[in-house]
């Protein structure tokens, strides 16, 4: 009788471990998909933020890159 219980336990545990494996496979697939989404989205954003892309986009607004650098005025207080 005891042995039967043990066997049942063993079967149950082996099934539950199988289930875990399926779960892991599912999660792995999800990781892959999320990673793909991340990289793909990031690559789209990176292309968008490239200066050459922005330059063409703002051309419609008749904006173009400045030919002189920004001037920073730094006020130093002399005490």
């Amino acid at each position: 009788m005891f042995i039967v219980v043990l066997m049942l336990l063993m079967i149950a545990s082996s099934h539950s471990s199988d289930k875990e494996v399926m779960e892991i496979a599912k999660l792995n697939k999800e990781i892959k998909e999320l990673r793909a989404e991340f990289v793909d989205t990031r690559s789209i954003v990176m292309k968008l933020k490239l200066e050459s892309t922005i330059k063409n986009k703002v051309l419609e607004l008749e904006l173009k890159p400045s030919e002189t650098p920004p001037q920073v005025i730094k006020v130093i207080t002399v005490k």
Partner: peptide
């Protein structure tokens, strides 16, 4: 050269005129 020049700031220091 121009791009690198325009993206670096020119800093003008002004002595405290409050």
């Amino acid at each position: 050269a121009q791009k690198i020049y325009t993206s670096s700031h020119i800093i003008n220091k002004i002595n405290g005129i409050e």
